[in-house]
């Protein structure tokens, strides 16, 4: 069942029929979540209305990390089973994950301005997210550099898995670095413990973001499948030209 679904042709069919209901679900969830987040949830007694940024910030952070996990899983698929759809899934996930990491960073610094009076503080969590963003950029750069998709997928898989092993180490060392410098800067991004009135909209928004990420991933994969088909057609065209003979042969053709 799964192997059939993973064939590119079958994938293009089921993803096309899945996308419209999924889009509707995403829109409904996002509408509900935004209503809860903007209208129902009370402003924070300390942070005021700015607390609402969290309803975008936290799901974006969650998705930035999930997409890395998705890429790492697909990378295993590429390396172990050499499945072309694993390559496609990896390639489609990278820009989406990078975009969510960027959203997380931007909302984090927008939140920081009223809270700390500056757009950026080298807080442990934000800094870890910045490094995750940089790793995403490296992966995107590697995709761009290698023209052949299969070779590129192999190279990127190795980089992704090395990154996956390193991310906990990076996270740990950044935390350690931050506590080392506590004296210099005592600001922390984490607010007080989460109140239930905030938790519900946050969860709805997290589910809405996840659906949105899923939609984007499917769209990205479809685009990548089509892009590969275009590339293969161009290669076939070049090969066909090689076999076709020149229309107007000169007298030399016979003698040479």
């Amino acid at each position: 069942m799964l192997t059939t679904m993973a064939r590119p042709g079958a994938f293009m069919r089921w993803s096309r029929s899945l996308l419209p209901p999924l889009c509707l679900l995403t829109a409904a969830l996002a509408g509900w979540g935004l209503y809860l987040a903007l209208m129902v949830a009370p402003p924070d007694y300390q942070q005021g209305e700015t607390v609402r940024i969290m309803f975008v910030h936290v799901p974006a952070a969650w998705l930035a990390m999930s997409f890395y996990m998705l890429m790492a899983a697909s990378a295993l698929g590429t390396l172990i089973w050499r499945h072309p759809m694993a390559d496609v899934s990896q390639k489609a996930a990278a820009p989406i994950g990078a975009a969510f990491a960027l959203i997380c960073l931007v909302t984090g610094s927008l939140w920081g301005k009223p809270m700390w009076g500056t757009y950026w503080v080298w807080d442990a969590r934000l800094t870890s997210m910045l490094i995750l963003f940089l790793i995403y950029l490296g992966i995107l750069a590697l995709w761009r550099t290698i023209e052949d998709p299969a070779t590129g997928a192999r190279a990127v898989s190795i980089l992704t898995l090395v990154g996956a092993v390193n991310i906990p180490i990076i996270k740990f060392s950044v935390d350690w670095w931050f506590t080392l410098h506590q004296g210099a800067s005592v600001l922390r991004l984490s607010g007080p413990t989460i109140h239930p009135s905030i938790l519900q909209p946050l969860l709805v928004m997290a589910v809405a973001f996840t659906c949105f990420g899923f939609v984007l991933h499917l769209l990205g994969m479809r685009t990548e499948v089509l892009r590969r088909r275009v590339r293969r057609l161009a290669l076939l065209e070049a090969e066909r030209l090689d076999r076709a003979s020149v229309p107007n042969l000169s007298p030399y053709a016979a003698s040479a």
Partner: peptide, 10 residues
């Protein structure tokens, strides 16, 4: 190839 050479000689 043969055709290519013919074009070249032309």
């Amino acid at each position: 190839d043969r055709e290519g050479r013919a074009v070249l000689f032309d």
